[in-house]
């Protein structure tokens, strides 16, 4: 089953996928939010998970991170099943995320917010090591010199940067970004796109839910397009965005 999916759905690169989603399903009462969705993520790939509002993208991300348990289906990281495990187990196995509505830890300093990401994951840094690592990550996301500030003193984009630094502090095998670029102004957006691009250059594996088309075009290797919980297209960004069914999902059916 796994092998067949790989043959069908992936470019023949030969590398084994790092993250495998197999027929993932999530039902809320009578609503099927994610409907038997399958896709693979290769090491070092940046995958865009796109689709109109309410199509189940964030729910899919929540299934991977363990915030929600799938009703059916399997999600594996390096062939180890992670679906059904509690979120802290999934986090320790190497998946970190940011949240759609930014979630910084308000009563901790900027530095402590980042350290929070490094202490409990597989790195288990503590004391001076954790502090040094946090400083290097703050520099990485562009928050040099803010380490001792309270988080309330940060602007919106800086809070987003902080959340990204916290996610990176776990040195994740797969990084999940939930609309990380949403709500930024045009110049901030440019900075944000460059930052994610630089992470990809480093070889990070990233799955991002995003609405900003510029970012999707310039960043993603491949896209998975969802509509009402179902995968309607998958492939290279250019191909997917010109797919008639994808256009119909976003813009509605003009023939009707």
């Amino acid at each position: 089953m796994n092998a067949a999916l790989q043959l069908a759905g992936l470019p023949s690169s030969g590398t084994a996928p790092i993250l495998t989603v197999e027929a993932a399903r999530k039902v809320f009462g009578g609503l099927v939010a994610v409907n038997d969705l399958s896709f693979d993520v290769l090491p070092g790939e940046l995958i865009g998970l796109i689709g109109p509002n309410g199509s189940g993208k964030t729910t899919m991300l929540n299934l991977i991170s363990g915030a929600l348990k799938p009703t059916a289906g399997t999600i594996s990281l390096d062939d180890r099943r992670i679906s059904g495990a509690p979120p802290h187990v999934i986090a320790r196995s190497g998946i970190a995320r940011t949240f759609q509505l930014v979630r910084v830890l308000p009563s901790l300093t900027v530095e402590e917010n980042v350290i929070a990401g490094a202490v409990f994951g597989h790195m288990r840094l503590w004391g001076g090591d954790a502090k040094d690592f946090a400083h290097s990550l703050l520099a990485r996301v562009g928050l040099v010199g803010r380490a001792d500030m309270p988080t309330t003193a940060l602007t919106y984009i800086d809070q987003k940067r902080l959340e990204l630094a916290r996610a990176l502090a776990g040195d994740p095998r797969v990084l999940l970004l939930d609309e990380w670029l949403a709500g930024l102004n045009p110049s901030e957006l440019q900075i944000g796109i460059e930052l994610i691009g630089a992470l990809r250059e480093e070889g990070r594996t990233i799955v991002m839910v995003e609405h900003v088309m510029d970012a999707i075009r310039s960043l993603c290797d491949r896209c998975v397009v969802m509509n009402t919980g179902t995968k309607i297209a998958e492939g290279a960004v250019g191909d997917v965005l010109s797919d008639p069914e994808v256009i119909r999902a976003y813009l509605g059916d003009s023939d009707a």
Binding site: A67, A91, F99, R103, L105, P106, L108, V119, F120
Partner: peptide
């Protein structure tokens, strides 16, 4: 440290492991 994070946001706490 874990308790301080939990006191701030339990969801984030679980997601940092």
């Amino acid at each position: 440290f874990a308790m301080r994070i939990i006191g701030n946001d339990e969801t984030v706490a679980a997601h940092v492991g």
